[in-house]
Simulated scan of single mutants.
Amino acid sequence: MVEHSEQQGRRPANDGPKAAARNRSALVAAAREVFAEHGLEAPLSAIARRARVGQGVLYRHFPDRAAAVAAVLEENVRQIEQAAEDGDATFAGVCGVLTWHLVDSAAFIGLLHAERVGSRSGTRAYALELSERVERALRRHLPTEHRLGAGDDLALSIAMVSAAVIGPTRAERELRALAAWRLLGVEVGSVRTFGG
């Protein structure tokens, strides 16, 4: 019996769970980019192309648009929570990570305006839960007696900054976000993804 090598047209071995995890990670990153560039109504096929996977792989991970948006939102919130849990975290540093996600993710801005989200299939409740997680992460490092510490002032400030994040380029959106924070009297650390 003759074995055929990969050079003779044989397909490489299936990596199974490793490939699935890699594909999912690539799809979330691609969805973040595509939604930021083209809005939440961008074709899902654009996400598959950007991630360099087939549409079947996309639909195995995200059966519909809502699932893709939810994955991006969850990743954004998870990174903000990780930044807040870091031993060296400061309010300014967590605000920097939040600002990176505001500037980089159209889906995330929609989350922070959860009252506008429709009520179908629990979407509004899910968006509110994620929004509250962001606020809790920031509040952990909000200095005592900070002017945004009263009532809903912090949540309102986050919504106000997110509403200011507009512009055709990432640089312009970042400048507007930082200006909005400055007008609210908030110092923001380095605008970066957590771990970046």
Rank of each mutant, 00 (worst) to 15 (best):
M1A: 14
V2E: 01
E3T: 15
E3Y: 12
H4I: 15
S5W: 05
Q7H: 15
Q8N: 12
G9V: 12
A13C: 06
N14E: 07
D15A: 10
K18W: 02
K18L: 08
A20L: 07
A21M: 03
A21R: 06
A21G: 02
A21L: 04
N23Q: 14
R24A: 14
A26R: 14
V28I: 15
A29W: 00
A29E: 07
A31F: 05
G39F: 05
G39K: 07
L40E: 13
L40C: 11
L44Y: 03
S45D: 12
S45C: 09
R49G: 04
R50C: 04
A51W: 00
R52S: 11
R52H: 08
V53K: 00
Q55S: 05
R60D: 13
H61S: 09
P63E: 10
D64L: 07
A67H: 09
A68D: 05
V69P: 02
A71T: 05
A71E: 01
V72K: 03
E74W: 00
E75G: 01
E81F: 00
A84C: 09
E85R: 12
D86H: 13
T90Q: 04
G96H: 13
V97I: 12
H101G: 15
V103Q: 04
V103M: 03
A106F: 11
F108Y: 13
G110V: 14
L111M: 11
L112R: 03
E115Q: 04
G118Q: 03
G118P: 09
G118F: 00
S119Q: 06
G122K: 01
G122R: 00
Y126E: 12
Y126A: 13
L128D: 11
E129H: 08
E129F: 04
L130T: 14
E132M: 10
E132F: 06
R133L: 13
R133V: 15
V134L: 07
A137P: 05
L138K: 03
R139A: 10
R139I: 10
H141E: 15
L142Q: 15
P143F: 06
P143C: 09
H146Y: 09
H146A: 13
L148H: 05
L148F: 06
G149P: 11
A150F: 13
D152N: 12
A159S: 12
M160H: 08
V161G: 03
V161M: 02
A164W: 00
V165N: 02
A171Y: 07
A171W: 05
A171G: 13
E172I: 08
R173C: 02
E174I: 07
L175V: 11
A177Y: 03
L178W: 04
L178N: 09
A179M: 09
A179Y: 04
A180W: 01
W181H: 01
W181L: 01
W181Y: 02
G185E: 08
V186L: 01
E187A: 13
V188S: 05
G189Q: 07
S190K: 09
R192D: 10
F194D: 14
G196L: 14
